[in-house]
C-alpha cells in the first residue's frame, strides 16, 4: 500500500509516554488531515512537546505508535524527518554563525545542492523579511527575528508537514501578527499541513482549522471549534449573560417566564440565565417588545475561551487560571 494515500498525514494510535511514574502522554489518538492547520491546545506540562517529539522520532514512545504519511518515525526516521519541518519553541541556531550560514547548514544537512540551496535561501529570507539581517550573527538577533529565521529554515527544507511548538512564545503583538500571517500563508498558499501547539487559545482560534485540547497528557476533546462547542453543550446547560435597561423586577420576571430558562441569577450588573437551549432569539424579541434596551447578550460556551477554561476547570483544576491571552 502506498503510505501517503491516506487522508490523514499524521496519525497516532494509543500513543503513550511515561517518564518514570509520570504519565506525560496517555493513549493519544491524534489525526491530522492533509492540508489542514491543527492546533494542540493545552497548558504547560500537558504533554504537547512530548507528543511532538514522539511524532518526530526524537523520543521513543512507551506504548502505541505514530505514523507520518504512513511512515513509522522509529523505523524510518529519515523518511519522517525529510517530510517534516520542526520549529521548536525556542528555535536553536548557532549564535556565532550568521543567519545565512545557519540556513546553509540546514541545506547541507538536507543534502541540497549548492544551487538549489542558494535559490531557496534567498527566496526564504526575502519572504520572512530578513534579507538585510542575513549577514549578521544570530547572536545579535531579537527573538522575533530568530523565530522568523526559523520559518525561513522551514522554507529552505520545504517539507509538506510543519510542526511548530509554541511558535508565538515571547514575541510582541506585532511580531505575533506577522508570524500568524506567515503560518497562514504556509498552509493556504503553499498547501502544507501544519501542526502547532500553543497555550494561547486566541491565536489557535484565529488560525486553526481543527483543535485538540490537551490536559495532563490526555486529549480530552478535539474537532473544529464549532464541534468543540457543541460537544460541550451536550454535557452542560447553556449559560446566557444579559444586560438590559431599565433594570427592574419586571425584567427579572420576563426572563423567568421565557420558555427554556430554568434559573436566573444576578451577578453584578449582569443577569445570568441557565437554560436548556439557545433562547437568544425569543428573549431578545421579547425584551425589545417590552421596551427594554438590550445592552449585552452573550451565550457562554461558544467561544473557545469558555470551552478552554471550562475544560481546564473540569479536568485540570487550577489550569483554568493559566490563561495568559
Amino acid at each position: 500500500m502506498a503510505p501517503s494515500a491516506s487522508k490523514y498525514l499524521v496519525e497516532t494510535n494509543k500513543l503513550t509516554k511515561h517518564y518514570g511514574s509520570l504519565v506525560a502522554v496517555s493513549n493519544l489518538n491524534l489525526k491530522v488531515k492533509t492540508g489542514s492547520i491543527f492546533g494542540i491546545l493545552g497548558p504547560n506540562g500537558a504533554g504537547k512537546t512530548t507528543t511532538i517529539l514522539m511524532l518526530l522520532g526524537l523520543t521513543e514512545p512507551t506504548a502505541g505508535s505514530a505514523r507520518i504519511a504512513g511512515y513509522d518515525p522509529l523505523r524510518e526516521p529519515l523518511k519522517v524527518k525529510a517530510l517534516t519541518g520542526y520549529l521548536p519553541d525556542n528555535v536553536g541556531f548557532y549564535q556565532d554563525m550568521t543567519g545565512l550560514e545557519n540556513l546553509y547548514y540546514t541545506a547541507d544537512l538536507n543534502g541540497l545542492s549548492r544551487e538549489v540551496a542558494k535559490e531557496r535561501i534567498h527566496a526564504a529570507l526575502e519572504r520572512v523579511g530578513l534579507t538585510e539581517a542575513a549577514e549578521r550573527k544570530v547572536g545579535e538577533y531579537s527573538r522575533g527575528m530568530r523565530q522568523r529565521l526559523g520559518i525561513a529554515d522551514l522554507l529552505v527544507k520545504d517539507p509538506p508537514l510543519i510542526i511548530m511548538d509554541e511558535p508565538t512564545l515571547g514575541i510582541d503583538p506585532e511580531g505575533v501578527r506577522e508570524l500568524l500571517q506567515l503560518i497562514r500563508e504556509l498552509a493556504h498558499k503553499d498547501k502544507r499541513t501544519i501542526l502547532l501547539s500553543s497555550h494561547l487559545l486566541h491565536q489557535v482560534q484565529e488560525i486553526c482549522d481543527e483543535v485538540g485540547i490537551f490536559v495532563k497528557g490526555k486529549m480530552i476533546a478535539s474537532g473544529t471549534i464549532d464541534q468543540l462547542g457543541s460537544q460541550l453543550q451536550a454535557k452542560e446547560k447553556l449559560q446566557l449573560e444579559l444586560k438590559a435597561e431599565p433594570r427592574d423586577e419586571a425584567l427579572y420576571q420576563l426572563c423567568r417566564r421565557t420558555e427554556g430558562v430554568t434559573e436566573v441569577k444576578e451577578e453584578g450588573d449582569l443577569l445570568k440565565l441557565t437554560c436548556q437551549k439557545d433562547v437568544r432569539p425569543q428573549l431578545s424579541k421579547a425584551l425589545v417588545e417590552a421596551g427594554y434596551n438590550l445592552l449585552h447578550l452573550h451565550l457562554r460556551g461558544f467561544s473557545l475561551d469558555d470551552i478552554y477554561s471550562r475544560y481546564f476547570q473540569k479536568e485540570g483544576g487550577d489550569y483554568g487560571q493559566d490563561r495568559t491571552a
Binding site: K81, N90, G92, F93, Q95, T106, N110, D153
Partner: peptide, 18 residues
C-alpha cells in the same frame, strides 16, 4: 552546549541519523 542553545533538536529533526 548544543542542548543549551536548543540546536540539538533542530539539527536532529533534519533528515540525518542521530
Amino acid at each position: 552546549g548544543e542542548r543549551d542553545r536548543g540546536t540539538l533538536s533542530h539539527v536532529l529533526s533534519q533528515p540525518i541519523y542521530r
